[in-house]
Structures are given as C-alpha cells and as structure tokens.
C-alpha cells in the first residue's frame, strides 16, 4: 500500500519509519489501522484456537481453567476493540474523505495521535498475559482492573465521532 508515495512528487514529508509515525495523511493512517486490525485478528484468532483446542474433547487437556478464562476474555477484548473497531475505523479513514471529495480528515493530527495510542493499548493488553497471576480472566464484560487497558478505546470512539462530524460537514 506504500505505493501511494510515488504519486507525491511535490510534497516533502519524512520517509521510512518517521513517515508512518508522524503522518497526518488519512490514507496512511487508514493503512496503519487496517494492518493493526489484521494483526490483532490473528492474535485473537490464535486465542480462539486455544479455546477450541481445549473444548475439542471433554476433560482438561491443553490449558488450566484459569488460563482458559484468560483466553476467552482476551479473545473477546482483542476481537472487539483490537480487530473489528480499528478495521471499521481504518476503512472510514481511507474512504470517507475520498467518497465525499475532501482532501483529508478533519483534525488530521488528532487522527494520527488516536491511531498511535492503539498499538500501545494493544501491547498493554497483551502484556498482562505475562504478568504474575496471569491476564484478566473475568470475561470481557467485567471489573475495574481492565480500566487502564480500556482507556484508549474511548479515544477510539472519539475519532470515530470525528469521522461522523467530518461526514456531516
């Protein structure tokens, strides 16, 4: 998807990794969102595989019950907040400006900022797995300890509502 750069002779912007970190271009950000979403889909999918492997036969074979609950919880959280939401946001980022004939999203820097919160949030979420006592094991609907990892999601909605605002304009 980086082929987009070839069409951009008369603009100066950083290249390499800095291009992706500092970008305010809705297409770059959309690409980032989509790849992030896909990586999370695979991580969440791997967890689903663990769940189905355990449920393949009655009895406990693969993991212990505590880890199983962690898997169901993380699978839910990652799929909802890590895969589907950024996937939708990525599509919106790419397409809505093109569909309505706008040069870019409203508040482009905000747009960049809100993406880069995501990988950190995702890493934080996944890293809880390796902490002492295991990751969250209480279903994706439960309890406060999640609040730290939840926080970025609300920013996610924030950007989504910015999209809607941009759309209505």
């Amino acid at each position: 998807m980086s082929t987009a750069t070839t069409h951009d002779e008369h603009h100066h912007h950083p290249t390499g990794i800095m291009r992706w970190i500092t970008t305010t271009n809705h297409k770059d950000i959309g690409t980032l969102y989509l790849w992030f979403s896909f990586i999370m889909l695979l991580i969440g999918g791997a967890m689903a595989m663990v769940i189905r492997a355990e449920l393949f036969q009655p009895g406990m074979q693969v993991v212990d019950p505590n880890f199983f609950n962690t898997m169901t919880t993380m699978h839910g959280l990652i799929m909802v907040f890590g895969a589907i939401m950024p996937g939708m946001v990525g599509l919106a980022n790419w397409l809505i400006p093109m569909m309505i004939g706008a040069p870019d999203m409203a508040l482009p820097r905000m747009n960049n900022w809100s993406f880069w919160i995501l990988p950190f949030a995702g890493t934080m979420l996944v890293s809880t797995l390796f902490m002492e006592g295991g990751g969250p094991a209480f279903g994706w609907t439960f309890y406060a300890p999640l609040s730290t990892t939840f926080a970025p999601d609300s920013t996610d909605f924030f950007i989504f509502s910015v999209h809607l605002l941009g759309f209505s304009r």
Partner: peptide, 9 residues
C-alpha cells in the same frame, strides 16, 4: 455466570 477459575465445575 462466569465466576472465576472453576466456573465450569
């Protein structure tokens, strides 16, 4: 209702 480690038991 999920109630912790031994919810299934």
């Amino acid at each position: 209702e999920l109630c912790g480690k031994d919810h299934g038991f």
